[in-house]
Design a protein around this nucleic acid. Structure first.
Length: 605
DNA sequence: TAGACTTACGCCCTCTGCTGGTAGATC
DNA sequence: AGATCTACCAGCAGAGGGCGTAAGTCTA
């Protein structure tokens, strides 16, 4: 099952009920299958994907009380059905079933999926309903052998022989007859199922099989299914007609297995074990008793081993040392994992949908969410949901004062999506939605051939056609197409504290407001093509930007955070030390020193 | 039954990509 | 001087690597 997570038994597993099987061809192929002694099935898509194709109609039947069973998950891949078995546990005698609609593809019409009501904490169980006309041979190959288990331990499957031969076909059987010719496979139900006498000419004997599952070829995401031949003694109150034939040889085995496979159930949870010692140990997990206390930090542990490992974290004792590097670990498991990460690069957990492979199952589980889009970790403050806990935790940092106002303040006036009719009242939701339109459209000017990637560029460009100048100077009513042009204008003409950037020619001292103009002049000046006209007037500061103290460039995170906040407002990109008082380099010749505060005044809106 | 082994969860980190805002360069 | 384009930065999120630890399971 590598590469696929079977996360929800409620949805994944189904009990076999009256699956029909092709007898004769299957019988022939049985020999073929026994060559390797196993049958293999692949895992399959999620059940929800088939929901729409489920055939309505409930299976109204009960589940025999108590015990452990084997559940069958069924689905299809591109060409054939696949089945996967997994053990389930039943602990109630009166499990009520309710229908759920899922799982079965259209061509498996007649199979129904039902689950028990789980109010008592029962593990989920699904059935294939009656009326199935599907032939199991299309789905799965089954290997028979003599392994038997007691009724108390396992849920039994009954093959009701309807044809002359009992057989199970291989999954690769392409010569199967119609499903109607199959052999009924049904779960044995004590005291409630009236098994019809076999039709004339057919075998008058019921045979019981145990269905087992175990991991198969990991590289192929396989599960091996095995059906064991099982004949059991019928309860005394069972009608004779329905009593299975029990052979002597098998009886002894059943008895042995009955003793060896007795299961012990935890009253507090679903835990079941074949050993009383395991149950006793498990019961400790329900106890709050932690008698083993760390003398260094007073932390308590249930077992000595846990305490010992904990103490190693205090003492730094790491007995498991890596032979290939200097790393050492408290437990052997850590060492094995470390070696896989760093040295052997063994990645046993492989994604079935891509080439991703991971060292740990949890990483694969996390990765698969990138395929499914599942986001189980919902932010309690906004619509964001994360695929793992850490991202949610990291996201929560964004719910801080400045950020909250910016992104999560409810706005009466909705924000309209620029690409569709969606409207949002929180900026965050709006931004997230806009991302869904990423690379959806290119922006093309309706007046000329101009095209651009970002709408903001187009917005500005369009104004060159319309003549629109929305940015108005409140001092002189001059209008501008871009906000930054207005800002420059205001600074230059209406802010008395503004110190214009002046670029002086290093040779003649002529001042220029633009660096590139100065450069052009300088080349001519150096070649003697241009005379200086401003010599002696250049008593102004040089390029201002380098005058900003170097500390701002270092900007560790905390300092930068503080630097860009002015009166609680954020000024992105304007990282200037607040109130440092440092004299700006290059202002020495002015009548008044230019200080940081002055720069801030200029920047202050 | 203790200890080894396995599994699962959580935490933290880095790398990467995207987006909005801005400054600077270019025409 | 204005229009346009580009580069840079900060913030955020997606994806994955690596490790610590607790708890469950197995086995001698």
């Amino acid at each position: 099952m590598a590469g696929t997570e079977v996360s929800d038994p409620l949805e994944q597993f189904t009990k076999i009920k009256e699956l029909e099987m092709m007898p004769e061809k299957a019988s022939e192929e049985e020999e073929e299958k026994e060559k390797d002694g196993v049958c293999r099935v692949k895992e399959h898509p999620r059940p929800g994907e088939m929901e729409a194709e489920c055939t309505p109609g409930a299976l109204q039947t009960g589940i025999p009380g108590g015990g452990q069973g084997l559940a069958l998950a069924t689905t299809e891949d591109s060409e054939k059905h696949v089945l996967a078995l997994q053990a389930v546990h039943l602990s109630s005698d009166d499990v009520a079933l309710q229908e759920v609609g899922w799982l079965l593809p259209q061509h498996q019409a007649g199979m129904q999926a039902v689950v028990p009501q789980t109010g008592s904490g029962l593990q989920s169980l699904l059935w294939l309903g009656e009326g199935s006309q599907q032939s199991l041979h299309q789905c799965v190959a089954i290997h028979l052998h003599d392994e038997v288990y007691s009724l108390q331990e396992v849920e039994l499957m009954e093959f009701h022989v309807l044809e002359e031969h009992v057989a199970v076909a291989g999954e690769d059987s392409k010569s199967a007859a119609s499903p109607d010719e199959g052999v009924g496979l049904r779960k044995f139900e004590r005291g409630q199922e009236e098994i019809q006498p076999p039709a004339e000419g057919r075998v008058d004997e019921k045979q019981f099989f145990l269905v087992e599952a175990r991991p198969g070829d990991e590289r192929r995401n396989e599960i091996v299914l095995t059906i064991s031949n099982l004949n059991i003694e019928e309860p005394e109150d069972k009608p004779a007609s329905s009593q299975p034939h029990v052979g002597k040889d098998n009886s002894a085995k059943i008895q042995n297995k009955t003793q060896g496979k007795r299961s012990f159930h935890c009253d507090l949870c679903m835990f079941t074990s074949s050993r009383i010692s395991s149950l006793n140990r498990h019961m400790k997990t329900h106890s709050t008793e932690k008698p083993h206390i760390c003398h260094l930090c007073l932390k308590a542990f249930r077992t000595v081993t846990l305490l010992r490992n904990h103490l190693n974290t205090h003492t730094g004792t790491r007995p498991y040392k890596c032979g290939d590097c200097d790393m050492a670990f408290v437990t052997s498991g850590e060492l094995v994992r470390h070696r896989r990460y760093k040295h052997t690069h063994e990645k046993p957990f492989k994604c079935s949908m891509c080439k991703y492979a991971s060292v740990e199952a949890s990483k694969l589980k996390r990765h698969i969410r990138s395929h499914t889009g599942e986001r189980p970790f919902q932010c309690c403050l906004c619509s964001y949901a994360s695929k793992d806990t850490y991202k949610l935790k990291r996201h929560m940092r964004t719910h801080s004062g400045v950020h909250l106002r910016n992104l999560h303040t409810y706005r009466d006036t909705g924000l309209n999506c620029r690409y569709c009719s969606a409207v949002f009242h929180e900026r965050y939701d709006f931004i997230q939605h806009q991302k869904t339109h990423k690379n959806e459209k290119k922006f093309k000017c309706e007046y000329c051939s101009y095209a651009c990637k970002q709408e903001r560029h187009m917005t500005v460009h369009i104004r060159t056609h319309t003549g629109e100048k929305p940015f108005v100077c409140h001092s002189c009513n001059k209008c501008f197409r871009q906000k930054q042009l207005l800002n420059v204008h205001v600074k230059k003409h209406h802010n008395t504290n503004f110190i214009p950037t002046v670029y002086e020619c290093p040779k003649c001292g002529r001042a220029f407001s633009r660096w590139n103009n100065m450069q052009t002049h300088s080349k001519k000046c150096n070649s003697g093509q241009e005379k200086s006209t401003t010599s002696g007037k250049g008593k102004r500061m040089k390029k201002r930007k380098p005058a900003i103290p170097q500390e701002a460039d270092k900007r560790d995170e905390a300092a930068a955070e503080e630097a860009v906040l002015v009166n609680g407002e954020r000024y992105p990109g304007e990282v200037v030390p607040v109130g440092c008082g440092e004299t700006i380099v290059g202002s020495e010749d002015l009548e008044e020193d230019v200080t940081c505060e002055m720069i801030l005044n200029v920047l202050d809106k």
